[in-house]
């Protein structure tokens, strides 16, 4: 193992240009993938932020008793799809309206009676914020006799869902394409690095090196190329994130697990492609 590591390091020393070029190719192709991941992650984040705003508002008639209202609240909360129910009393509604709509403040304060109805604000659990569920829950809520009206942004929810579908589809297709391109570039870089040492492999076989002995330094080299390339790509992506955040708009950085997984996948892939590339040269006796 030590011998193999020494062999891999010797390759770095002997063909520095080739090693630098292949690491560069690996890091740049992974960087492009990183940029895509950053974009996809932020779009997803923005969409789920919007999604959290999906809520059903049920307006109660003024003659609903507190007891009825309380019981209904408990019942609604019991639905599996419902995350939480907030009861907004008439007084609260007035206070909120006063706060949020300052231009009407005087109108509201001049009134003898409070014209605003009490309401439930119903929020759904993640995964249930679809037009179908929203509609079904709305139908159940409106069935209470003291609920006058229930409202949710029908078109808005539908549009949000289709937007999410497009984003998810694009992530899979474009992400897959980027990953495939990165994969091909890495495999090519590794293959060139191995082919450049074909002569060395031949001579190793000639003097009686075992297949394992020949293979090991290449595997380590491929693994290191993937690892170093992955780390450089992560660093470049981070720089891009800082740059965009500083100049264009505040965006979120990728979760640490994603990064770790990507770097690990990169190094494993480097190892695997090396194994394949070397295998070509170990055919025959």
């Amino acid at each position: 193992m030590l011998q193999a590591l020494r062999g891999a390091l010797a390759a770095f020393r002997r063909t520095p240009v080739l090693v630098v070029i292949s690491i560069l190719a690996v890091s740049l192709s992974l960087f492009v993938f990183g940029l895509f991941a950053l974009t996809a992650f932020n779009i997803r984040g923005a969409l789920s932020e919007i999604e959290e705003r999906v809520e059903i508002v049920a307006y109660l008639s003024d003659d609903a008793t507190a007891e009825e209202a309380g019981r209904a609240e408990v019942e609604i909360r019991d639905h599996t799809q419902v995350l939480d129910v907030r009861y907004v009393s008439k007084t609260e509604a007035l206070a909120i309206a006063g706060r949020e709509l300052p231009e009407f403040r005087e109108v509201f304060s001049g009134l003898d009676a409070n014209p605003l109805p009490a309401s439930y604000e119903i929020r759904l659990r993640p995964g249930y914020r679809t037009p179908e569920v929203v509609e079904a829950v709305t139908a159940q809520v409106i069935a209470y006799p003291f609920v006058e009206e229930a409202d949710y942004g029908r078109d808005w929810v539908a549009r949000l869902v289709s937007l999410q579908r497009i984003a998810a589809g694009a992530t899979v297709i474009i992400g897959g394409a980027f990953a495939a391109v990165a994969g091909i570039i890495i495999a090519t870089a590794v293959r060139i690095a191995v082919a450049a040492r074909r002569e060395e492999i031949e001579i190793m076989r000639l003097v009686g090196a075992t297949d394992g002995f020949i293979r090991r330094p290449f595997l380590i080299e491929g693994w290191l190329t993937g690892l170093i390339g992955g780390l450089i790509a992560a660093f470049l992506t981070y720089l891009a994130h800082r740059f965009v955040s500083a100049t264009l708009m505040e965006i979120n950085w990728l979760p640490a697990e994603w990064l770790m997984l990507a770097v690990l996948a990169g190094s494993a892939y480097g190892l695997l492609t090396s194994a394949f590339a070397v295998r070509r040269h170990l055919r025959g006796l």
Binding site: R14, T15, E199, E200, E202, I203, R205, L206, V207, G208, A209, T210, D211
Partner: peptide
């Protein structure tokens, strides 16, 4: 590999590693 270690080989083109 075991057999080849028991044989020495020399060629017209030497087959030395240039580096």
């Amino acid at each position: 590999p075991k057999l080849r270690r028991k044989m020495g080989m020399a060629f017209q083109d030497f087959r030395l590693l240039k580096d």
